[in-house]
Design a protein around this nucleic acid. Structure first.
Lengths: 218, 218
DNA sequence: CGCAATATTGACCCGCGTCAATTGTCGTGG
DNA sequence: CCACGACAATTGACGCGGGTCAATATTGCG
């Protein structure tokens, strides 16, 4: 069933762990416990963030409480810049997560890198549209697992930081359907579930072919 | 039904109409007939584009031919920049369309504006995800009409440049469902169809409330 | 006017959402 | 170590929204 969603209270979190990092501009390293809000819809956009360890979900809500996760951010990935001055989405740590926080103003000046990041963000969102828009449940889950594997450097064993609910809200499905799709992939021996949140990709080719992405012309 | 899709041949078009424009860097004004390909998947990314008049659809294909429109670009809007060096999507003129073409290299240098445009593109894609992911057919069509109206400056009479098929592929529906949704909005007297492609918004409030977007906190 | 392309409408059916029950996982305390 | 409770995930039964297929209507163009 659709889960009606309430973001956990409070969007300002006390740094539990502060350190310096290697990029220019003022920045901090902050550790968020799982479920903590990094920023909320309506917060002003004045920082950007890079994940050191852990994972982040970024999502929007519609008025009846349905949630749509628009992206997951894994270790090494950057997020938090938006066109408007107020955030349109929520960002939360999925599990305990260490994050570098940059002040946005000093970053803004030398923007070629920031531009590249924005373009990557847009590409991800558009690819996601193809998946959500035109693929069935099993294909969506397959695409999700492939994407995660690719972003982690092509590993065959995935440890999922997020719950089935998070995956469902990302793929615009329900937990039940995600679960059934997982079971089907398992029965087809495309994947194996070593543990509920630990997936072994047994047949990467079969998984990839389920993703239906058009072959790029040379 | 799902339409299986073949992009019209040829991705290089002879300029039918060339002129100078007001931005820095080498650029041309080109007129594309309806259906002409501006760039195709796999083409190298070396220009960016601004619509003078007309409209453009940008879309992806999956291997079985299903199409997903990821965005429409209207007069005044800019498109064509991507993270990779090869285009991931196709862009086509919907009807006869006049476009300013910028060489990308000279643009690249002073990128703050380009960054802003990329951020707008990302925001659009993410908002679109919310619609596709979590709203039913009538709501999607309502959101589509509202969005178009807003981008045209809040007009109440819309002339749709795109076909039902384009709308369907944008909203991840079928033409039949788009048609039924239009009929329902018409029967509820939320809109009126002056002509198949000319929509009058009779009850803007009703239309907006169908879009279910969470109210932004102040 | 006639033909082709586009849009609408209707009947049917299937994938996925809904609701409900069951199983599995993990943390805490005896 | 097991008992217990809370939560997460799985599985089953069923219904509905929207896809499929087909017929009809409308629009645009020569």
């Amino acid at each position: 069933m659709y889960a009606t969603f309430k973001p956990a209270a409070q969007s300002v979190v006390m740094p539990e762990n502060v350190a310096r990092a290697q990029f220019p501009g003022a920045h901090l390293v902050v550790t968020y416990k799982g479920g903590r809000v990094i920023y909320a819809e309506g917060d002003s956009v004045d920082k950007c963030y890079q994940v050191c360890a852990g994972a982040v979900r970024e999502y929007g809500l519609i008025s009846d409480g349905r949630r749509q996760v628009v992206s997951f951010h894994l270790a090494g990935e950057t997020f938090g810049f938006e066109a408007a001055s107020k955030h349109r989405f929520f960002a939360e740590a999925i599990a305990e997560t260490r994050i570098i926080v940059f002040a946005r103003r000093p970053i803004q000046e030398h923007s070629p890198e920031l531009l590249a990041l924005a373009l990557v963000g847009m590409k991800r969102a558009q690819e996601h549209l193809l998946v959500i828009g035109r693929q069935c449940a099993v294909e969506r889950v397959a695409a999700f697992l492939m994407d995660l594997s690719d972003r982690l450097g092509g590993v065959r064993q995935l440890r999922l930081p997020m719950s089935r609910q998070d995956i469902a809200d990302y793929l615009a499905l329900t937990i039940e359907t995600v679960s059934r799709a997982m079971t089907e992939l398992k029965e087809r021996k495309v994947i194996a579930l070593r543990h509920v949140r630990t997936v072994d990709i047994i047949k990467p080719d079969a998984l990839r072919s389920l993703c239906h992405r058009a072959a790029l012309r040379s």
